[in-house]
Design a protein around this nucleic acid. Structure first.
Length: 153
DNA sequence: GCCAACGTTGGC
DNA sequence: GCCAACGTTGGC
C-alpha cells in the first residue's frame, strides 16, 4: 500500500466532481508527463490512497483523500482525435498513456494550503514544495502522509 | 546528440 | 495575466 498526491485543477475536475461519481469513481485521465506516467503505470496500485490537490486556483492545496480502485489501464483519451489529450503516436496495441480509476474517500473541512505545507520542515523533501515543481503525480511517504493527516480537521 | 525555440504548468 | 521553471520538439 502506497501513498500519492494527485494534482487537478478544480475548474476542470475538483474533489466535488470526484465525490459526485460515488463508488464507481472516475478514471484519472490526461496525464501527459513521462515521469508521472511511469508512476501511474508501474507503481500506483489498487488500494493505494492519494491526497487530492487543487492547483491553479485561489488557494492551492490538499483538499481531501481518494482511493485507487483499479490500477492503470490505457488512457482512452489518447485514442480520441476529438480529445485535447489525443496522441497520434499512441495505438491500442502500443498505448503510451495510462490512467487509474479512483474514488472519493473524504474531503477536509478546510484546505491544507501549499503556503502552509511549505512552512513545515518535515515536508521539505516533498517534490510539491520545491520550486518549479510541475509533477502532477508524486509519491508521499508514510511519515509525510501521517503528518499531513494530522493537519486536517 | 546538441540545443534553440516553443509549449505547458502553476504559483503569484 | 505574468513569468519562472521545466519538458518537448525538431533542425542540424
Amino acid at each position: 500500500m502506497a501513498y500519492w498526491l494527485f494534482k487537478s485543477e478544480p475548474d476542470t475536475f475538483g474533489i466535488d466532481d470526484l465525490k459526485s461519481r460515488g463508488a464507481k469513481g472516475e478514471h484519472w485521465d490526461g496525464v501527459r508527463n513521462y515521469q508521472a506516467r511511469n508512476m501511474l503505470r508501474d507503481e500506483v496500485k489498487k488500494g493505494d490512497l492519494l491526497f487530492f490537490y487543487h492547483s491553479n486556483c485561489e488557494v492551492p492545496g490538499i483538499v481531501g483523500i481518494a482511493e485507487v480502485i483499479k490500477s492503470a489501464f490505457p488512457d482512452p483519451t489518447q485514442f480520441n482525435p476529438e480529445s485535447k489529450y489525443y496522441d497520434p503516436k499512441a495505438t491500442p496495441e502500443n498505448p503510451r498513456w495510462f490512467c487509474p480509476q479512483v474514488k472519493f474517500q473524504s474531503k477536509f473541512k478546510s484546505t491544507i494550503s501549499l503556503e502552509q505545507l511549505k512552512q513545515i520542515p518535515a515536508l521539505q523533501d516533498m517534490a510539491l514544495v520545491r520550486k518549479g515543481n510541475r509533477l502532477s503525480i508524486m509519491p508521499v511517504s508514510a511519515d509525510q502522509w501521517q503528518f499531513i493527516l494530522g493537519l486536517a480537521q
